[in-house]
């Protein structure tokens, strides 16, 4: 500490011989003024910085609504092959908001997960679980194949080759008045158990489900 600070040994302004000091006063008027000015500046800066920051990161916490989209009549979908259907994920932005979903009827001999009202039809996303490129169902090979980095998936969407870290995502389906409807997206682990939707590239087996938590913006 320099001598400048050491010479003010006393807390009291009157002891320090400051002109006009009150008895028992510890904060000089100069120090009080400095502090008030700094506080006013901080409040002024925070009053625009905090709302702007909240505005920018707000979408992280806002849940995106989803709606049911009609895919087609129930007899359109066989139980041993996929029919591609185009649905709108994000309305209002034209082609960029659309995606292809591969739909088939549930087949009890190969679909071993528990049947319920939301998986009578199997809807598999075309979004690769590696980095999100569009996979294509190749009928002759009975495989989903990704053009970008060579990800390969089997009939159930489970990874059989290439870099993907988990099976292809699925969508909930329901039947209304003889028509199949496609709802919200969900992710599955390698046992095809349901999880909140994760982005591509995020494994959810084992520790992965905690390293890549579900997000408030999109829940199961």
């Amino acid at each position: 500490m320099s001598d400048k600070h050491r010479k003010h040994a006393s807390r009291y302004t009157s002891d320090r011989k400051i002109p006009g000091a009150f008895e028992g006063e510890t904060v000089t008027r100069r120090r009080f003024m400095t502090g008030t000015t700094h506080a006013a500046g901080a409040i002024a800066a925070a009053s625009f910085a905090l709302p702007a920051l909240g505005f920018a990161i707000g979408p992280i916490f806002k849940e995106t609504p989803h709606k049911w989209e009609t895919a087609g009549p129930t007899d359109m979908f066989p139980d041993n092959n996929y029919i591609p259907v185009v649905i709108t994920l994000t309305p209002g932005i034209g082609e960029a908001g659309k995606t292809t979903v591969y739909v088939r009827k549930r087949n009890p001999s190969i679909d071993l997960e528990k049947p319920d009202s939301l998986n009578q039809y199997i809807a598999i996303t075309s979004r690769c679980a590696h980095l999100g490129c569009p996979v294509r169902w190749v009928d002759a090979a009975e495989r989903f194949i990704c053009p970008c980095h060579g990800g390969v998936y089997d009939l159930l969407g489970r990874r059989v080759g290439g870099p993907p870290v988990r099976p292809l995502d699925r969508f909930y389906t329901r039947v209304v008045d003889g028509f199949v409807q496609i709802g919200a997206r969900y992710s599955v682990n390698s046992e095809l158990q349901r999880f909140s939707p994760r982005d591509p590239g995020e494994p959810i087996d084992g520790i992965g489900q905690y390293l890549y938590p579900s997000r408030p913006s999109i829940r199961r």
Partner: peptide
Amino acid sequence: SDFLRGGPEFGA
């Protein structure tokens, strides 16, 4: 990723 996209999907 949500911050970059402004939501869970590539959006408006």
